[in-house]
Amino acid sequence: MNPSPMDPRPSAKKDRIDSLAETSGRGGTATAVKDVHVGAAGKVKDTGGVSLIASAWARLRRNPVFLLGLAITVVFVLLALFAPLLAPNDPTKRMPELLEDLSRSTNPVPGPEAGFPLGSDDFGRDLLSRLIVGARQTLIVGVFATLFGLAGGIILGTLAGAFGGWVDSLVMRIVDVMLSVPSLLLAVSIAALAPRPSQWTVIIAIAVVQVPIFARLLRGSMLAQRASDHVLAARALGVKQSSIVFRHMLPNSLGPVIVQSTLVLATSIIDAAALSFLGLGNPDDRQPEWGQMLGASQQWIRDYPHLAFYPAACIIVVALGFTLMGESLREALDPKSRR
C-alpha cells in the first residue's frame, strides 16, 4: 500500500492537516492577506470581496493540470456508471470458448481471440469485460472507503470542534492513538484481523485509516469557525448551539475536507491493490475490482505480465486523475499559493 502521496509523513500529516484547515477555514472571512494576482480573472482583492470558491474556479478553469485530472475522473465515473452496458460479456461467467483453450498445464491464460480482444483471465473469463466492470467495483471501493472515512471523521471532528474543552481533548487523544499506528499497519491489521474478509473489510480497513485525518482536518476548520464573526453573531442572536454547529459551522468547514476526499479516493484504490497483494483483499473475485485483479496477477507476472499491466495502468491513470484534480483544488483554495 502506498500511503497517500499527499500525506505520507505520518506526523507532518498533523501539521499539514492543521494548516490546510486554517487557511480555508478563514478563507471567506477577512484575513490580512495582501493583494494577490489571480490568473485570468484579473486582480482580485482577497479581503472578503470575491468568495474563495469563485476565485478558485476562475483559476482552475485555466489550469491544464486540473482539466486533465477532471477529464480522467469524468471518463472513469462514466465508465463505472455504464460498465454493464459497455462490457461485451458477462465478467463473472466462464466463457465456453475460452474454457476450451484453457489448460492449466499448457495454456493457463488463453490469449486474444475473436470476440475477446484481450483474451481470457486464468479462469476462462473475458479479461476486457472484467476490466470494464472492474471500474465500477473500483469506484465503489474508493467512494465507500472515502465516505466511511469521512463519516467517521465528521463525527469525531464535529464533536471536537463544536464543543472544545474536554470533549476536544478526549476526541483528539483518540485520534492520536489512531494516528500513532502507521497507516499501512493499521489497514493491514484491520484487514488481517477481520473474521471474514470481503470487499467490505477492505473498504473499512482503508476507511479507518482516513478517519483521524478527516477528524483533525475538520476540527481545525471548525475551531477557526468558532471564532469567526458570523458564528459570534449567531450566538449573540441566541441561536441554539445545535443549529450553530450544523447550520453555520459545519457547512463552512467542509471545504478542505472535500478536497482531501478527492485525494483519499485515489489512495484508497491503490491501498486496495496493496491489501490484495498481501493476501488480505477480498477473497471472492467474482465481481472484478482492479486492485484485486492486480493483486491476483502477481503469480502470473513473469509469463503473462499483461494480466498485471492492464489493471495497474488503469489504477495509475485514475489515481493520477483524482490526485491532479485534488492537488489543483487544494492549491487554488490556498490563499497563500494564489500568485
Binding site: 502506498n2 502521496p5 485515489a266 491503490i270 491493490a273 496493496a274 497483494f277 492486480l294 502477481q298 507476472i301 498485471a308 495497474a312 489504477i315 495509475i316 489515481a319 493520477l320 490526485t323 491532479l324
Partner: peptide
C-alpha cells in the same frame, strides 16, 4: 506527474 506515477505504481510491480 512522474513523482505521482512513482507513488501509484504498486511496490511488487
Amino acid at each position: 506527474v512522474g513523482s505521482l506515477i512513482g507513488v501509484a505504481v504498486p511496490v511488487f510491480f
